[in-house]
Design a protein around this nucleic acid. Structure first.
Length: 344
DNA sequence: AAGTCGGGGTT
DNA sequence: AACCCAGACTT
């Protein structure tokens, strides 16, 4: 266990990590800067997200919102548009609020201290540690899933990473091997975790720590990390009505208290006198991490101008078309449905 | 301390 | 189909 490790007996491990990083660091767009804004954005974008999945989003986001001020004065819906397809949409909402926080509370200057960075919306202990260490010489380990995996194997430590105290526990383990340059150390740990110390089939032969790794020496790599909590996806059925007329269709914005926060969707009900316009339905399935969705979408081809207008007025729906829908953020399955429904 | 929040790649 | 990913927030 990690508890009875003391002193500086593992500091040479930190040197090996930095040495490996010098020669093997991934070439990523946010590696050539110490601009705290860019580092912050990349940390948020890549939360629970593979580098390849989020790279285009990151680049497009920085191009459109190159600094805090530009982001702060943008419309929330445009920020959401640049987040389209990335998932965990509260990140986009929070990133926008945090930019305004920086303008209002810090005069537009990104805060330097860990405790101040931590106050920003959507910034937790991991992100505050990452930004402060990479940009300002902070000394906090940025403990993420890579740290859990690398450290649990290095020390053959069976502490349950699904335990809510795991962050604190592995922060203490990280401190045992952490060198002076914590910014590079944090990034090096992420690269080792994703490139070498992978969840399955890790490349232990190429690992700079294979001489120090306790799990490797015991050939017990697959036993770590220990994670007891299992994810269970529950079934959820949704019903939508694709209400359209002359290539235009109706949408509204979702609330911020459930899935797909503030994204746009179709009406979920129609008046009974509109049911005669239904021409059929299509059911699409969509798997989320915690939900298996079955979405039934009824095709409603309205031909009555009055019923169309009354329905819109009573419910304050927005009218859009294929062109206009590109400027709004839809949940993935609805995005796909729109493309198929309106391509001719 | 446990539950919730996306989408996509890997095995 | 299960697992995981540069986690944070709410309850």
């Amino acid at each position: 266990m990690g508890k009875n490790k003391t002193g500086s007996e593992f500091l040479h491990v930190g040197s090996k990590i930095l040495e490996w990083y010098k020669n093997n660091a991934r070439d990523l767009p946010f590696r050539q800067t110490k601009d705290p804004y860019k580092i912050w954005i990349c940390e948020i974008v890549f939360q629970q997200t593979r580098i390849n999945q989020g790279l285009n989003h990151y680049n497009n986001f920085i191009k459109r919102f190159p600094d805090v001020k530009t982001l702060a004065k943008a419309e929330e819906n445009e920020v959401l548009l640049y987040w389209k397809g990335l998932g965990y949409y509260s990140r986009a909402i929070n990133i926008h609020k945090a930019a305004q926080q920086i303008m209002n509370d810090y005069q537009g200057v990104f805060p330097h201290q860990y405790e101040e960075i931590l106050k920003l919306k959507g910034v937790g202990k991991y992100t505050a540690a990452a930004v402060s260490s990479i940009c300002f010489g902070g000394k906090m380990p940025a403990v993420d899933g890579n740290f859990y995996r690398v450290l649990s194997r290095l020390f053959a430590d069976d502490f349950d990473i699904s335990n809510s105290r795991a962050f604190t526990y592995f922060s203490e383990l990280a401190a045992l091997v952490m060198p002076e340059n914590v910014g590079d150390f944090n990034q090096a740990m992420m690269d080792i975790g994703s490139e070498i110390c992978k969840p399955k089939n890790p490349l232990c032969g190429e690992c700079p720590l294979n001489e120090d790794c306790l799990a490797f020496s015991m050939q017990k790599i697959s036993d770590y990390p220990v994670k007891t909590k299992k994810v269970k996806a529950e079934d959820l059925a949704l019903t939508y009505y694709f209400v359209h007329k002359n290539g235009q269709f109706l949408i509204r914005q979702r609330a911020d208290d459930f899935i797909w926060k503030k994204l746009f969707e179709f009406p979920t009900a129609i008046p009974s006198d509109m049911e005669s316009f239904i021409t059929g339905s299509k059911t699409v399935t969509h798997k989320l991490t915690h939900k298996n969705l079955s979405i039934e979408i009824w095709n409603v081809e309205v031909t009555s101008e009055k019923q169309w207008n009354d329905f819109i007025a009573e419910n304050q729906y927005l009218i859009t078309d294929l062109e206009g829908s590109h400027e709004k953020s839809f949940p993935k399955p609805l995005e796909i449905y729109i493309q198929n429904a309106l391509k001719d």
